[in-house]
Amino acid sequence: MFSINKIAAYMLAVVLLITAMLVAISIGTVSVPIFDIVKIIGAGLFGLSIEQVDPMYSNIVLNIRLPRVILAGLVGASLAIAGAAFQGLLRNPLADPYTLGVSSGASVGAVVTIFFNLSLPLIGKFTLPLFSIVCSFLTIFIVLLFSQRIDRSMKVETIILTGVIFSSFLSAFISLMIALTGEELRQIIGWLLGSVSMRGWDYIKIILPFFIIGSVLVLVNASELNALSFGEERAQHLGVNVQKRKLLILIAGSILTGAAVAVSGTIGFVGLVIPHLTRLLWGPDHRHLLPLSILTGSSFLILADLVARTIISPTELPIGVITSLIGAPVFAIILIGSKRKERRR
């Protein structure tokens, strides 16, 4: 299962993630030496002494930059693994939480929660991610239902086209909510542009349980995704309960997308580009593609957030702007390269 190439891929992905985290924590208005960062995090984890470290550095790392970096990493990992799962399930590199309308559905749930200032009893701060997840799942369910009505065979192209149509409709609904809003306008607009700024440890506590549940559900279906990539009929012959597995993967993708959108707003192209790039570099086997997408997606969004907050410092750009500026051209290059390879064959 683990060849030398795959072990090297995991080592490279882990090194990239650790490097991205250290660099993102280090760079800012106040630069923190990497050696001091290691000592501060080590003290937090293992109770080591940090007498020689400036208390200001400790406050910046533990209360501002570390939670921001971890949150960016979790959001990037969630969107990347959700994108990889949707692409594997639908056998199309254009499938991701955004083209399928899942992200727009999650956005509607979050905007409605903010607009009406909703807070359900017992769950409190989990109201926002819960509404996002429910709306994202309802959206993918409606998209599949309409796709089946349009085309009984539910071709991938039909599902994606239906997803794009619903995404446009839900975006119009969000615009209507913005037009009707008053005091919440700044909060909604800021949230829609995508950001992990000033979120703190509370937001990590919100996304973490959903990330774990969604990721585990996708990872345990890695072998089934491999079978489904050959087509549903072939997968059925191989003993896969296709309907059950499809439902589980769609639920998992909705959980991951809904939770990510709830804490960071809409951040595009991560779920589209990262799985595609990972597949090109290390192959289509979902047993490795999924965990490698988690690591790569996490690193990518951490670095994108670093660029967003430093490129025109002290002003911060929305992280969604950076991911789109990077993701769109990269995906275009990948797509052109893939088409050229197909022609050569």
Rank of each mutant, 00 (worst) to 15 (best):
A13S: 11
S299A: 15
K155T: 03
G214R: 05
Y10K: 07
V30N: 09
K205R: 10
I81F: 07
V112Y: 00
V23M: 09
F166G: 02
G327H: 09
S229C: 09
L94P: 15
A252G: 05
A332S: 11
T266F: 12
N92W: 07
S49M: 10
T181G: 09
P97Q: 04
L317E: 03
I140D: 01
P33R: 00
S104A: 07
V330C: 14
I41C: 09
S103F: 03
L120W: 00
I174R: 04
R245L: 13
V112D: 00
I255V: 15
L208F: 13
V216A: 10
I319C: 01
L66M: 15
L295A: 11
P314M: 05
S293L: 09
T99K: 01
I150M: 05
E184P: 00
M154A: 05
L17Y: 01
L180E: 01
I40H: 02
S313E: 12
K244W: 13
G337L: 12
G182K: 10
K205I: 15
S103Q: 01
R152G: 00
K6R: 06
A260S: 13
D36V: 07
A304I: 03
I206N: 09
Q52S: 13
A304P: 03
P97F: 03
I123G: 01
A80G: 14
R152A: 04
A95L: 08
L335Q: 08
N5C: 06
A82C: 08
V134Q: 00
L122S: 05
G105F: 05
I142M: 01
G258Q: 09
L225Y: 04
E184D: 01
F126D: 01
P93M: 05
F211H: 07
K244S: 13
L247A: 14
T257A: 12
S171K: 04
S49G: 12
T315G: 13
I37L: 11
V156D: 08
A9V: 04
L94K: 14
T278L: 08
G73S: 15
L247S: 11
M21I: 10
A85P: 08
P291V: 09
A222M: 11
S153M: 04
E342Q: 15
G283S: 09
T266D: 11
L272V: 15
I142G: 05
E342N: 15
G258H: 11
R149Q: 00
V38D: 13
L292H: 02
A77C: 12
P67M: 06
V242H: 06
S26H: 01
L12G: 02
I133G: 02
S229I: 10
A77G: 15
P67D: 12
S195W: 06
S168Y: 06
T323E: 09
G76H: 07
Q243V: 12
R186D: 03
D36A: 10
L128D: 02
F211Y: 11
V273R: 13
G28W: 08
A84L: 14
L335G: 05
G163E: 02
A328V: 10
I334W: 11
L170E: 03
F35M: 04
A72N: 14
H288Y: 12
P55T: 15
L306Q: 07
I204K: 03
I213G: 00
S3R: 03
A110N: 02
H276M: 14
V38G: 09
V156H: 07
D202W: 04
F210N: 01
V307L: 14
V108P: 00
L90Q: 03
S168Q: 05
R343A: 11
L272P: 08
